[in-house]
Every structure is written in C-alpha cells, then in structure tokens.
Nucleic acid binder design. Structure first.
Lengths: 246, 246
DNA sequence: TAAATACAGATTTTCGCAAATTCTGTTTTT
DNA sequence: AAAAACAGAATTTGCGAAAATCTGTATTTA
C-alpha cells in the first residue's frame, strides 16, 4: 500500500477524485459515457474503494450520475441545464456580492485586487500565444478565474451562499472549459476589461452597479457557450432568460 | 450476504443512509459525537463499505463532518448556522416561488391543495393529542410538511433552485425536529393558518404577498428555534437578520 | 409467430482482513 | 519541571475476492 517513494501526500481517494474530476471537466471522458469500475481501476491504477468514494463525491457535485445497481456515468451536458446553472448562479452571487460589499474590509479589497491581477496576467499571456495553449495552462487559468470570482463574494458571511456558488462554479466550468481552449484571441469580448470593471465597482462599494456588471458578465458567457454548443440551432434561444438586458 | 427473506428491497448503502440520517435528524446521535466505523458496524449490523458510502452522502448534505484519516462526527449545531440556512432558504425559495407562480398550471395548484390538507389533518391530530406523540408520528408530520413546501415551488422549472431548497430543508429539519416533539399545543402560533394563507396567496397568483408570507413564516420558525435552543441568552440576537420585519 | 421463461455473461455491491496512519500515555532527556 | 522521543493502542483506508444483481440472448411453450 506504500507509495513509490516513502510517504504518501494525500489519500488515494483524493487522488482518484482529482484525476476523475479533471478528466470529466476537460472532456477527456465524454458526457454520457459509462464509468465502469473495472475500466477505471485499470486506467488509474487504483482499487475499487477509492474510486467508488471519489465517484460518490463527484455525484454530489453533479459531475456524474448514478442509478442504484447500474453503475455510474458521466453526467450529460445540456444547454437548458447550463442556463439554469448560469441564472441560479446570478441569483446566488448577486445576494452574496451585496453582502460582501456591505461587510468587506481592507483584506477583502486586497484579495480582490491581487486575484484580479494574477488572472489578468495569465489571461494576457495565453491570449498572446499563437498556438493553442496546453490543457495544463487552461487549468491554471481556470483556477485563477475561480479565485477572483470567489474573492468578490468571500466576505458575504454566509457559508451556504458560498457553498452554492462553489457548486455552480464547478457545474459551469464543464461548459466553459472546451471553449477556453478555442479561439480566445478571436473573441470580440474583452473579458479582462469586464473583470476589471467588476473589481472597480465592488471596491467603490457600488452594489447595484457591481451586481449589474456581474450579471451581464455571466449572461454574456452563457451566450458565448450557447453559440459554441449549438451554433446553428435556434432551439437554444428558448433556454435564454426572459430578461437578458441589464 | 443474503437478506433474511429472499430478495433485498434496496441496497445496503441506502439502508445505512436512511438509518443514519434518521438517527442524526431525530437527535438519537448527538451533535458533535464521533461516528466510529466499528460502533456503527455493530449498531446497524452492516459492513464497512455501505456505512462509509452512506457517511459520505451525509457529509455532502452537511449532516456529518469528516477530516481525512480522522473519521466522521455528527455535524455540530449552531444558531448562527441555523440563521444562515433560514435566510438563504428564504432567498432561494422566494425566487423559486415567483417563478412557480408564473409557470404553475392546474396540476401545480392541485398538488399544493392536496399536500396542504394532508399536512393540516396530520397536524391537527397530533395537536389534539394529550400525550407526547411518538417519534414515528413526528417523522410522518415532517414528511407532509416537506411535501407541502416542495409543492409550492415545484413548478419553478429550475433544478438547481429545487436542489438547493431541498438541501436547506434537510439542514433546518435537524433544528426543527426536537422542537416539534415539544409543546406543540402550547405554541402561540397558528402554523396551520400560516400555511393556509401561503397556499391561498400562491393560488391567487399574488407573488409579492406569497413571498412575504413565506418569509415571515420561515423567520418566525427561526425565532421559535432560537428561543428553544438558547432560552435565556441574548447572544443569539446577534445572529438575527437585519430586517426581521416584512 | 409471439410471449414467457431460463440461462449465461457482465457489472455492481458488499465483505472482512491487512497495511498505513494517527492518537495517547509513558518514559527519557535536557 | 518542561520538552522530546518512543511505544502501544485505536482507527481509518485500501484491496481483491465473493455474493448479488442486472441485461441481453437463446430456448421453450402456447
């Protein structure tokens, strides 16, 4: 049971969880495909128990579905589910943001500024690249993106709001990931600008403006993803929120 | 590995989950007490694997806490956590309710009415009882209560809102349960009346009024629980929301 | 031919032990 | 006397085999 070299850093369950999560979010394991225990065991070189436990954690995050006695599958993707996640996220984070703006102290402001810059630098570097950035780099970008958005609402003083926001972030990450790798430079949006505006409004303690900017930011992302996943289809318009304008 | 008589109804994991959940919510397993695998194995007559899996599910529902390599414990209770859950629930369900009122059809109305009556009848019967009702009866009452509140928002067309509402219901159930067994008759509130008003406002499609009534309903419950868990203490007032009025 | 039944292969679920890790109380050293 | 080191105990974690279950195919029956 010992690791290659001496001490093991984390539990095998954690390892299984991280690897599976990455393979699902990055699309290596396709949506809807069944996850056979035997396969996974061979693929990751881990036993049944850690895999099973990891699969259960992923189930509670809605990344995998499971039916009793019929095993696990990668959770399917659908535009209507994506829009549900986007709109719910707006509803949750709008409230969290208002509270964070009310309660946030110097440390909160500092964290927003530093995570913003970490994100902006990374985004700039990847955007300037001529070739397609490697998946590892996209992962790092996603992490900084996550940290920035978390920093915005971190002072809201509600564990439940933070928890729900986290869950919705994970859900939308799956949809966002393949697009991030695509034509980043070609995008007509200046996402970094949007982030900066949100940051400035938050630090200026203008709650209404910050919420409006964040809402627009998320809806634009949703629209980008809609276009990416169903370029020709008109069907996805039905999933759009009723009030897309600010 | 075979069951007493022929076919097994569900998986052992499901059985472990249900039993553990009940023992935690009903208070049989006290908040904060450690959950040793050996103990549980003996107590429920189940193996490690089903228990472990059930414990993980309960962890994702915040009913148990866990630290890697240090086992599981029953999640602690705290007034500030309860108020967080109550206020977040209000925020989630207010939105879900508005949408349900917009989208709800005849079937939705019918479901609200029937679940209301099922709840009202049960509540009346338990209230008229002279002695303390048995735990099983309280469980049945809780189930009907849950069905009614779920019916109200069931037409909201958002799986995420419904999922979050469900999570928060479970969380608050833990706090409500011991109180339900107590002096139900002595309560100055007419809870059934509150439910009826909510039902009528919803069916009349008066969104603002329904949301206001539901908010008041949840806050009153929160206050009852505060009083029950910290009767003399002034400290819990600090956890109260800023705007308790309608 | 169609429906019902039986069978066989594949898959999931469960079990209990063994290994690894952490905790606790005692002894030794500074 | 305080800090560090150590050993034994308690607990969690991981594994692979065995049991239970499901799914699809072949066989039988009406």
């Amino acid at each position: 049971m010992s690791e290659r070299k001496g001490v093991r850093e984390t539990t095998l369950t954690e390892e299984a969880y991280q690897k599976l999560r990455w393979d699902i979010v990055s699309g290596t394991l396709e949506a809807g495909s069944p996850l056979r225990l035997d396969n996974l065991k061979q693929r990751y070189g881990l036993g049944y128990s850690p895999l099973r436990e990891a699969l259960n954690r992923l189930h509670s995050e809605r990344l995998v579905t499971t039916v009793a006695l019929r095993g696990f599958t990668v959770a399917p993707l659908s535009l209507s589910e994506m829009w549900d996640a986007v709109e719910t996220r707006i509803h949750i984070e709008a409230e969290a943001l208002r509270r964070a703006i009310e309660y946030g102290d110097d440390e909160w402001e500092t964290e927003i500024i530093s995570t913003f810059h970490a994100l902006a630098i990374k985004a700039k570097r990847l955007q300037d690249l001529t070739e397609q950035p490697p998946k590892e780099e996209i992962k790092a970008l996603e992490e900084r993106h996550h940290r920035f958005h978390h920093a915005l609402i971190s002072a809201c003083r509600s564990n439940w709001l933070l928890d729900f926001s986290q869950k919705l972030y994970v859900e939308t990450e799956r949809y966002r990931f393949p697009v991030l790798g695509g034509s980043m430079a070609a995008s007509s949006r200046d996402v970094s600008r949007e982030h900066q505006d949100i940051m400035e409004a938050a630090i200026a303690r203008d709650a209404d403006r910050t919420v409006a900017l964040l809402t627009a930011h998320y809806r634009r992302t949703g629209e980008t993803l809609s276009a990416r996943y169903a370029p020709e289809s008109e069907a996805n318009v039905a999933h759009r929120p009723k009030a897309p304008a600010l």
